[in-house]
Every structure is written in structure tokens, then in C-alpha cells.
Design a protein around this nucleic acid. Structure first.
Lengths: 107, 107
DNA sequence: CTAATTCATAACTCATTGGTTATTGATTTG
DNA sequence: CAAATCAATAACCAATGAGTTATGAATTAG
């Protein structure tokens, strides 16, 4: 049972996959063919990456005839922001602790 | 030639390794033995994870006799914050583009 | 000095995963 | 209808990586 952070980090750890996601963030909705043209890997590879991104909630798809259009869902990045600032936060709060400790030692 | 983002995402994608990093953020400097006691994996496994975290710049180590003390370096998370907010930013700016486009179409 | 402790490294195993080609189902197009 | 296009899936392969046990180097303790 991998948690949200696992899924997000693992999904974004692959450079090819992350590049696809970045492209969707930058340039908006794209078809699989359009993404494949830039990805540097085969169409099935791109499809697999899109499947992983979709599982992670990072992209949404829309069918239209024989094409599938994918778009990013950047809201799914929220937990990542939370986690990162929390880690930085722990750091600061430890400094606060130290500060308070030093103050108390001053008296 | 993996870039900074690759390294960061890959390093944090493993749950055991991320847990070690979280612990260091939360509780401050720890010895390898202390980390091993909580990690649920063997000491060599912990040492390997610490090596990876160190390579990524996420932790620093300090030798003292036969013990090695590790501490987190949360500043190394900065690129992650940047990347994440940039991706969210692209999204918004595309909305802005759309907004401006619609305004222009209004005239 | 010897024994114990701490951590890193080596050597290995097994599972995961990112890639490939081949194929198929579904839709357009001629 | 026949041919072409689009994307997903299947089957397979090779590389990576996280774990293990065994060992060694350095330090501390008895």
C-alpha cells in the first residue's frame, strides 16, 4: 500500500515521464501522437507513461474519435508542496526550539 | 547526466529512504545506529540510503570517533519547491492566456 | 592487549521498471 | 468497403536498485 507521496515521487522520478508532464503543464492539452513526436521514445512507451501519470492523478484524458487528449492536473502536485514545506518547517521549528532553549539558558 | 530534479525525485521516491530523511528533518542529527533502530532494514541498507541522500545533497555527515552523525540539509529541497510551483504556474499562466484571448475576442 | 562496537563496502539475489516490437480495436479517409 | 491512422495492450528483454549476508577498518572499553 504505497502512499500518495510514494506514488508522486516515483511517478515524477523518471525523466522521460516528467518531461511529458512538464510539456502538458507548459503547453496544455496534447494528443498521444503529439507527445510521442517529442518524447524520444516509442508510442507504446509514451502510452505507458501516460497511464502511470493518470494513475497518479497528475493527468486527465479525454477521448475524441480515435485520438486521446491528455492534460495536466497540477492540483495533484499539492501534496508535494505540502510535504516539502513541512520538511523545511521541521527544520525551522528545531531552530526555534534551539533559540528558546538558548533564551532559557540565558536566564 | 541526470539533472538535479532527477536526483531529487529518485532519491525521495524510495519510502525507506524518505522516512530516514523525514526523521532527520523532524528529530535532527542522528547516528547510523539510531536510524537503523527505526528503519526496519539492516544497517548496511541504512548506510546505503544515507550515501544516496548525501550524494543528493539532502544530508550532511559528521564523524566523531567511530560514529557518523547525519543531519538533514533541507535547503537542498529548494529546487523541488521551485519546480512544483513552476508547474502550477504554467497552469495559471495558460489560464491567463485564455482569459486575455477571450477579452480580445470580446472586442 | 583483547574484545566489542560502529559503520562502510563488497558480493550477491530478486523484483521492478522502462524500453522494445508486434498486434489489435476503433475510427477516419479515399 | 478498403486503406490508413491512432492509441492501447501483450509479450518480452535488459538494466537498475533495494535488500540481504559477510567482512573489514577504525575506534573505544575492559
Amino acid at each position: 500500500m504505497p502512499n500518495t507521496f510514494d506514488v508522486l515521487f516515483k511517478t515524477l522520478a523518471d525523466p522521460t515521464r516528467r518531461a511529458i508532464f512538464e510539456r502538458l503543464c507548459r503547453d496544455g492539452e496534447q494528443t498521444v501522437a503529439a507527445l510521442t513526436a517529442q518524447a524520444g521514445v516509442s508510442q507504446p512507451a509514451v502510452s505507458k507513461h501516460l497511464g502511470v501519470l493518470k494513475q497518479a492523478g497528475l493527468v486527465l484524458d479525454r477521448q475524441s474519435g480515435r485520438q486521446t487528449h491528455y492534460r495536466s492536473q497540477p492540483a495533484a502536485l499539492a501534496p508535494l508542496l505540502d510535504w516539502t514545506s513541512q520538511m523545511a518547517g521541521f527544520w525551522e521549528s528545531r531552530f526555534d526550539d534551539l533559540e528558546q532553549l538558548l533564551k532559557r539558558m540565558d536566564n
